[in-house]
Amino acid sequence: MLRFDRVSFSYRTETATISDVSFEIGEGEFVALLGENGAGKSTLLRLCNGLLRPTSGRVSVRGYDTATTKTSAIARFTGFLFQNPDRQICQNTVYGEIMFGLEYILPDESERRRRTDETLALFSLDGLGDPFGLSRGERQQIALAAILARKPVLLLLDEPTTGLDYRECMTVMEIVSNLNAEGTTVFMISHDMEVVADFARRVLVLSGGRLIGDGPVRRIMKDPGVLREASLLPAQIPALAMTLGDSFANIFTIDEMADTVGQRALARQTSVGKTS
């Protein structure tokens, strides 16, 4: 689906922002991109759909080389959610906003209207509402709805949950997760390690423009070397599991922790009962 082959990128006046990065993301994967501020995460995401072109190396999406394909052509099958929804919203109604993005991919107006109605229902949005009068979380949802209405096969998310409260964050992430379950590939930047632990299955870690970690979320979240180099703190449950030692090494979720602690408490109770 997405392939980076020895990609480097630098802005005109700066030293390399992305340096010799190679990886491949397959269809249906849910990948999180982690790293400290200034590591080059947003730059890397912009390289994925041709908003930026690599200085050297090759980026291909579904076989299309981003250096030679128009961004608007790549946008036909990719969706990109920016941190700031206000850069995307440009219509006076929620309905108009969702329709606007569809104009470029669906020539048939009735199909556009059907797709818009479907999206409004999925997100429980009021089509006649004024998007600019809504909260940031709601505007982020509208921006996401407008992208998802286009049914992209690759979804690029630049910190989709920044500025959202817990409920809004879960609503957005559950929609993304459901889409991923239906086959959409998701590549997401996030600083929220709990969100990454709960939803992503693979993690890429960027530090100083270099890829320093690539693997299953369970492994990377428990790799102290990679986490330290990228100035990251693991999610709470993996952190607790690491603190508790090797016997908790495989624990990653709240349910797993609850099961293990429960089993141990039961075993201890039984052994205490036997001794007494």
Partner: peptide
Amino acid sequence: EEMSGIMEAQTARGVEFDT
């Protein structure tokens, strides 16, 4: 800069600013 960001966001959703 804001306008560039807006154009970038619109290009990413298929608006043909690269025409």
